[in-house]
Nucleic acid binder design. Structure first.
Length: 522
RNA sequence: GGCGUCGUAGCCAAGUGGCUAAGGCAGCGGAUUGCAAAUCCGCCAUCGCGGGUUCGACUCCCGCCGACGCCUCCA
C-alpha cells in the first residue's frame, strides 16, 4: 500500500517511507495549559490521533509523543500567559467553571498548570485521544525538561558551542538564524523578508541587541519571572520553541523523526525555529521527514473567537452549550442537551484535515445521527451472532477494510473512507461475525462508537448517576405508553412519547414493548 | 506586498482527462404505522466565471472573480 501525505516542508504530496520499516515516530505540539482546551485545539490534536491510529491499522508500531506546554512564556510587552491564567482562574472560580478547591493558590503557576493539564487529559481521553492515555511517559511537560544535559539548558549549551547561538548585551541567549542556512525552508520565509517585516510588536530597543531581526530567544534571564530556573546564563526561563526540540529528541530518542504535526499557525515561527534548533544541535539536515499541519476550524463560518460568542471549549460542547440559531427568528439558544464525546470527535475528524472545516450545530446533529447508525449496526450484528460473540480474524486483505485503509493512505482521506464505510453498513451482512470484526477495525481508527458498548478504544462514554436516573424515568414513561396503547388511548400514549423525546430519548415500538434509547446529542 | 490552500447539489463532503460525478444530512414519492419513530425501496448536481490545450475537461494551462490561512501570541 502506498502511503502519501501532503508535506508542508516541500508543499507537495510525498510517499511516506518510515525511517525504520514498520515503525513510525511522531511528535505533536500539544496544548498550553493556561485554560481549557477549545474545539479548535482538539481538531488539530485529533487529526494527529487519526494519523496515529491509521498507522496502527496498517500494522505500524507507532511512538507518538505530545508535549504539555506548562511554562508561561512572556509575550513582548504583554502579560505572561500563566499570569493571565491566574487572573482568569479567580474569575472562573466565582462563576463555578473552576470548582472551589480545585486550585488552592491561584498565584501558584504550577497549580494552575496542573489543574488545566488534568482537565485537558480528561477531555482528551473522553474524545478518544490515544496518547492522553500514555500520560506521563509520552505526554511530557515542558517544566520537566528544562534542566540537565538532555534538557533545554543542555541543548542551548550545545547550540552555543556549535556557533548557532550567542549571548547578547542584555544577557539574553538568542539563536542566530544566519548560522543555519535552512532557516525559512518550512514557512517559505527568507531572511530578507523577515528583516523587512521586522517591527510590529517587537521593540526597537530589543531588536538592536540582536544580530538579525529574525533571531529568536532561547533563554531569558529574569529574576522576577513567574517560573524560573537556574542556568549558566542566570536565573530565568527558556524560550518557547526550545521545549519541543528537546522533548521530541529525548522522549522519542532520535535526532530525526518521521512526522511532526501541529496546527497550521505553528508553521512560523514555532516549527521553523524547532528545525533550526534541532538541526543546529544534532548536525542533521532535517528534524522531521514529514511536517503535517491541520488547518483552522471555523465555527458557523467565522473564525472562532471569544468576542463573536462562537468560542467553545470541548466541555462547553459536552455540556450542550453550542448555540443553535433559529432559522425563522434568527434567535440563538443553547442546545441544552449534553453531547456525547464520540459525536464531537466525529464532527472534528470527519472532514479532511487540510480544509478549513466549519463547525456548526447542524453538523453536530448530523454527526450524532451517523454515530447512532454505527452503534445500531453493531448491535444488529451482535444480535445476529449465535453463541459467543468472540473475535473474528480480519486483516487488510478484506476487500472493504482494505479499501477503507487504501483511501486513508491517500493523505488521510477520512471523507473518502466514510464513503466506503457507510454504504457497506447499509448492505447485506451474511457473516455478522466477520462484519463485526471489520467494523471494529474501522472503529479502531475512527474511534467513535461508545466504548462500553463493546468497541475498543472508542471515545469514552460517561454515564453518571443522574444519567442513570433519567434513563429509568424515561423507561417508566415508555411502560406507561404501552399501557395506554393496549387501551388504544392514543392521546395519552402520544403525550408520553413527547415527554420521552423532551428528555432526550428516542422511543421505538417493538414486539416486546416500547424501548427507549438515549439520543447521542441534541 | 510575499508565501500557501481552496471554490463540486439546500447543507456537509469525496473523486476522475472519456461508461450512470462517492457518501452523508435535509427534502420528495412509496411500503410499514392508530399517528409517529426506526427500517426498507425509489427520486434528487454537469463540478465559481471566461478563454486555451485535447478526438474529449469538472479534472491540465492562462486570466478573472471570490473565500481563507500564514507572514505577530495563537491548534
Amino acid at each position: 500500500m502506498k502511503i502519501q501525505f501532503y508535506n508542508s516542508l516541500t508543499n507537495q504530496h510525498e510517499e511516506f517511507i518510515p525511517l525504520e520499516p514498520g515503525k513510525v515516530s511522531m511528535y505533536s505540539c500539544g496544548p498550553t495549559v493556561y485554560d481549557f482546551a477549545h474545539i479548535g485545539n482538539f481538531r488539530s490534536f485529533l487529526f494527529g490521533d487519526l494519523l496515529r491510529r491509521f498507522f496502527e491499522l496498517t500494522g505500524h508500531d507507532v511512538h507518538h509523543v505530545m508535549n504539555i506546554t506548562d511554562v508561561g512564556h512572556m509575550v513582548e510587552g504583554e502579560a505572561d500567559k500563566m499570569m493571565e491564567a491566574a487572573n482568569r482562574v479567580k474569575v472562573n472560580k466565582k462563576s463555578g467553571r473552576v470548582p472551589e478547591g480545585a486550585i488552592e493558590d491561584p498565584e501558584d503557576p504550577y497549580q494552575i498548570a496542573e489543574y488545566y493539564t488534568q482537565a485537558f487529559l480528561e477531555d482528551a481521553r473522553r474524545l478518544g485521544y490515544k496518547v492522553a492515555y500514555e500520560y506521563p511517559h509520552n505526554v511530557p511537560k515542558a517544566t520537566h525538561h528544562v534542566e540537565g544535559a538532555n534538557g533545554m539548558i543542555g541543548m542551548i549549551q550545545k547550540l552555543l558551542e556549535r556557533g548557532h547561538a550567542y549571548v547578547a548585551d542584555d544577557g539574553v541567549v538568542y539563536y542566530s538564524v544566519e548560522s543555519f542556512p535552512g532557516y525559512g525552508q518550512l514557512s517559505g520565509n527568507s531572511l530578507e523578508k523577515i528583516q523587512s517585516n521586522a517591527g510590529g510588536r517587537v521593540s526597537a530597543e530589543n531588536q538592536s541587541r540582536k544580530r538579525h531581526p529574525g533571531d529568536f530567544m532561547l533563554w531569558k534571564p529574569d529574576q522576577n519571572h513567574i517560573m524560573k530556573w537556574d542556568s549558566p546564563w542566570g536565573v530565568g526561563y527558556p524560550g518557547w520553541h526550545i521545549e519541543c526540540s528537546v522533548m521530541a529528541r529525548s522522549i522519542i530518542g532520535r535526532d530525526v523523526i518521521d512526522i511532526h504535526t501541529g496546527g497550521e499557525d505553528l508553521i512560523f515561527p514555532h516549527h521553523e525555529c524547532e528545525i533550526a534548533q534541532s538541526c543546529g544541535a544534532t548536525g542533521e539536515d532535517r528534524f522531521a521527514n514529514f511536517w503535517i499541519h491541520a488547518r483552522f476550524l471555523f465555527v458557523e463560518n467565522e473564525k472562532m473567537s471569544k468576542s463573536l460568542g462562537n468560542f467553545y471549549t470541548a466541555r462547553d460542547v459536552f455540556d450542550g452549550k453550542v448555540k443553535v440559531t433559529d432559522e425563522n427568528t434568527g434567535e440563538q439558544t443553547e442546545m441544552g442537551r449534553s453531547v456525547h464525546p464520540a459525536v464531537l470527535r466525529f464532527e472534528l475528524i470527519k472532514s479532511h484535515y487540510r480544509t478549513n472545516m466549519n463547525f456548526t450545530a447542524k453538523g453536530l446533529i448530523d454527526s450524532a445521527q451517523t454515530i447512532d447508525r454505527m452503534v445500531e449496526f453493531r448491535k444488529t450484528l451482535e444480535s445476529k451472532i449465535e453463541g459467543d460473540i468472540g473475535e473474528a480474524e480480519v486483516d487488510l486483505s478484506h476487500p472493504v477494510l482494505g479499501e477503507f485503509a487504501e483511501v486513508l493512505a491517500d493523505d488521510l482521506n477520512v471523507s473518502g473512507a466514510l464513503g466506503v464505510m457507510l454504504p457497506w453498513i447499509k448492505g447485506n451482512h451474511s457473516d455478522p461475525r466477520l462484519s463485526l470484526a471489520v467494523l471494529k477495525k474501522m472503529n479502531s481508527v475512527l474511534s467513535v462508537a461508545p466504548i462500553n458498548e463493546g468497541i475498543a478504544n472508542a471515545a469514552e462514554e460517561v454515564e453518571s448517576e443522574s444519567d442513570a436516573a433519567e434513563f429509568e424515568q424515561a423507561q417508566q414513561w415508555a411502560n406507561e405508553m404501552d399501557t395506554a396503547r393496549k387501551d388504544k388511548d392514543w392521546s395519552t400514549s402520544d403525550a408520553f412519547r413527547d415527554k420521552i423525546h423532551a428528555a432526550g430519548f428516542e422511543v421505538q415500538q417493538t414486539p416486546e414493548g416500547s424501548k427507549i434509547k438515549r439520543k447521542l446529542g441534541v
